[in-house]
Design a protein around this nucleic acid. Sequence first.
DNA 1: AGCATTAGTGTACGTCTGATACTTTCTCTC
DNA 2: GAGAGAAAGTATCAGACGTACACTAATGCT
Lengths: 252, 252
Amino acid sequence: MTSDDFVPAPLRRLWGMSEPARLGRPASLDVNVVVAAAVKIADRDGLDGVTLPKVAKSLGFTSMSLYRHVGSKDELLTLMADAALGPPPDIAAPDWREGLRRWAFAQRAVFQRRPWLTRVPAAGPPSGPHQIAWMEAALAVMSGTLLDWAHRIGAMSLISGYVVQSVRQYSELAEGRADGQGQADAERDYGRALARLVNPDRFPEAARLFSSTLFEAPPSDTPDEAIADADFSLGLELILDGIAVRIARSDP
Amino acid sequence: MTSDDFVPAPLRRLWGMSEPARLGRPASLDVNVVVAAAVKIADRDGLDGVTLPKVAKSLGFTSMSLYRHVGSKDELLTLMADAALGPPPDIAAPDWREGLRRWAFAQRAVFQRRPWLTRVPAAGPPSGPHQIAWMEAALAVMSGTLLDWAHRIGAMSLISGYVVQSVRQYSELAEGRADGQGQADAERDYGRALARLVNPDRFPEAARLFSSTLFEAPPSDTPDEAIADADFSLGLELILDGIAVRIARSDP
DNA sequence: AGCATTAGTGTACGTCTGATACTTTCTCTC
DNA sequence: GAGAGAAAGTATCAGACGTACACTAATGCT
């Protein structure tokens, strides 16, 4: 409708540039209220629990009223994602490697707190103010290196993608268990079931894997969280090693 | 119900161990037919297009009839995922690095052909025969290295997660565009829009990025596919570098 | 004072998953 | 060779969801 500086409406909403509208009936609702209510529901019921009727009801309005403020459910999801991400913490570190490590762990902490964030479909490249702030943090960490822009973005996306992927996978598996079974127990059962199904002639390596002790009892006093942390770090350090190679290579 | 070897029903269906049932009315439908129909619909309409009524209708049955064969929609998705993945191609290669690279590209090709595969929620660890076959292929490639099991699985998951993540991201963005706009054009618009929104005081690095020429015209004769391939390779080679470091380290 | 403008509502439609209780069609046993 | 019993497929139904459309209600500008 309006065109303050040729910025489209969804972006204006993302960046909080909505003018309060000087004519007609004043709104008792605004984007931020709607988004906050939606986030609260997602925190409680997951992403599928977020429906327009439920969000509206939690605010004492009808479903259709929301469309005055968000345009579509997909847009609501985008707004929720940026709001729920929040600003990045301070990750000041002595070197790029420690900085990126902290960045990854900080992002992971946010996603673990709100696993539904990892399932919001990306409607476009990162565009929200919080997303940009996280981006800034990662770029700042790498600003001392000799990497070019493409590699900086590549490294950042790789890490960020890894974090998303690993948290989503972990939370999907945790949901799949659902009963009181812990990760360690589930892995043991998994290993045993597949040891019976996997034919050593067709799948020699996999058979060796499933008859190895890898899935059997971890010392049992190891909490699930520690296993998950170790798995996560293993992949992350691998990525950081790769980035290190690249940095060393661009420094003659 | 039955208990051939204490293998639960969903796994029996995955591995094609269904006994034809010797009593009662014989089935005119079976799991494979249902799954094949569902896959065909997913290929045409995406994952959200797969609904029990539609699958049933395409076979000339009613929705409820499917429950005789699949148990739940989630189970159907799991079955679809393994069926659609298909067996891995031959990726024989002179060394682990080339082998993993081919493995990654092969997986990417499958996912690009069926982007909905990247959105099937993981109901459990990889358990289907095709998933195991792909696993076998990756493990075989690494069998010459000195990595321990944990690192082999870690490397494999990292690559596989990267492939999934990057194809999903790419296809989500492509859907988001929807109009005839290509990737290059969209990136240019994105860069310009954000150059206006990003305040250089709050986000100095990001501002430099968006005012850099990175998002501006790639030579314009570069097809979208080539951009995507280059982005994908950049991340993949980074990961492979990381694995190389790890392999070198375990070889004294 | 009253009109253009904006906020929020009511209703309706087509869609989905899955529960329950049924009819139909087959094989195995007597 | 005839039913008994078991499994396959159906009919109907309830509760939800997203959103299009046309409506009423409330306000500030002129």
